[in-house]
Design a protein around this nucleic acid. Structure first.
Length: 365
DNA sequence: GAATCGTGGAG
DNA sequence: TCTCCAAGATT
């Protein structure tokens, strides 16, 4: 950390009141127009937007909310729909466990909360996929309760105004942020206005890089600014090491032009999503011999390759085309589907390209 | 409790 | 191109 760290102290009550009032005033004038910011707020649309917003930029959430909310206008609608239907709408968003948890949450809301999104933090925490932040966000922003929230924005704003140059990897830093968030929300006038305003301030003004201190309503109270440390707080986290892995994806086309697709395992990367039959290897690319043996296909032909990067892996995709083995004893995992049926499946993102772009371009029998 | 879970925007 | 990280949660 910095050679001269500032000691973290609880925000005094009068300072907290002053800061909260400035945030509320600023937010009343500077709030973005977002689909879920209706008056009054719809609790279900708010929950949808909060789940979507986990580790996802707000602009992308705003794009997706209309389709999701019109397809599932209430928890009950989603509770009665197949899991695949929400997964399909989630395509390309990442963190697909959010979609599966949301489906379970909708059923829990239907069965245990009379179809209404609960308002108490303790009840919200019972919903799968709803953690401390999301529970506090719904309780405060929708139901105006004095619940603290800490997301990336709030953590950054608090650390800066307090000049708290703490190790982001340290668990104590998290506790510190939650404690300060609680003191601030205790001192504000409207928890709904203040909490959402604090996040908005972090998103628009107190940004990770090049914060717009000249426009900030808290600049005079900001200790990082006073010490010209706003660019060093918070300190960056260590990047996660990425591992290379090889996937051999095989486009199998039958005589009728249908394409083989299989569902991925329920755990791990792209859990439950669909893909072209795939072999994975940590060391090297699977050989044609391994592929034909494992997948029970014939006439294997190379059809391209590309690199797909995720946070933790560099996935080298080796694409092949092939025909089904005849007769069928070895006939592979998955099922033959029309291109239209495949397009409607929740596809693992790289397989969207493989099955919808590369497959039509490969030769057919 | 460290590792895992995606994808894309912004600089 | 490369880094950082986004309205975090789960195991």
């Amino acid at each position: 950390m910095r050679p001269d760290p500032v000691t973290p102290n609880p925000i005094p009550r009068d300072r907290a009141k002053r800061i909260a009032a400035r945030v509320e005033t600023w937010f009343a004038k500077n709030a973005r127009d977002l689909p879920w910011r209706t008056s009054p707020r719809d609790p279900w649309m708010s929950l949808l937007s909060e789940i979507l917003a986990q580790q996802t930029q707000i602009s992308r959430v705003a794009e997706r909310i209309p389709a999701l909310f019109s397809t599932f206008p209430s928890p009950t609608h989603l509770a009665h729909a197949p899991e695949q239907s929400i997964l399909a709408l989630w395509s390309g968003l990442g963190y697909y466990s959010r979609a599966r948890n949301l489906h379970k949450s909708a059923q829990m809301i239907r069965d245990s909360f009379d179809g209404n999104v609960p308002s108490a933090v303790d009840d919200l925490l019972k919903l799968p996929g709803v953690g401390r932040y999301t529970a506090g966000a719904i309780a405060s922003m929708v139901f105006n309760q004095r619940a603290p929230i800490v997301d990336g924005n709030v953590r950054r704003v608090i650390m800066r105004i307090e000049g708290a140059d703490l190790d982001p990897a340290n668990k104590a830093t998290d506790q510190y942020a939650w404690a300060q968030s609680q003191r601030l929300v205790n001192a504000c006038t409207s928890p709904a206005l203040f909490n959402e305003g604090l996040m908005e301030l972090g998103a628009l003004i107190c940004t990770p890089r090049a914060p717009k201190c000249a426009q900030c309503p808290l600049s005079r109270s900001c200790r990082a600014r006073r010490a010209n440390l706003q660019d060093q707080i918070p300190a960056p986290k260590k990047p996660a090491a990425r591992k290379a892995i090889h996937h051999a994806a095989v486009i199998v086309t039958d005589a009728a032009g249908k394409i083989l697709a299989e569902q991925r395992p329920a755990r791990g990367l792209w859990a439950n999503l669909w893909q072209a039959p795939t072999l994975e290897s940590a060391e090297r690319a699977p050989t044609p011999r391994q592929i034909t043996a494992e997948l029970g296909v014939r006439k294997l032909k190379p059809a391209g390759h590309f690199l797909f990067k995720t946070t933790h892996r560099d996935v080298h995709f080796h694409i092949y085309s092939a025909h089904p083995a005849e007769p069928s004893p070895g006939t592979p995992r998955g099922e033959f589907l029309s291109p239209e049926a495949i397009a409607a499946k929740p596809l693992a993102t790289p397989h969207r390209r493989i099955l919808l772009e590369i497959a039509p371009a490969t030769a057919r029998p």
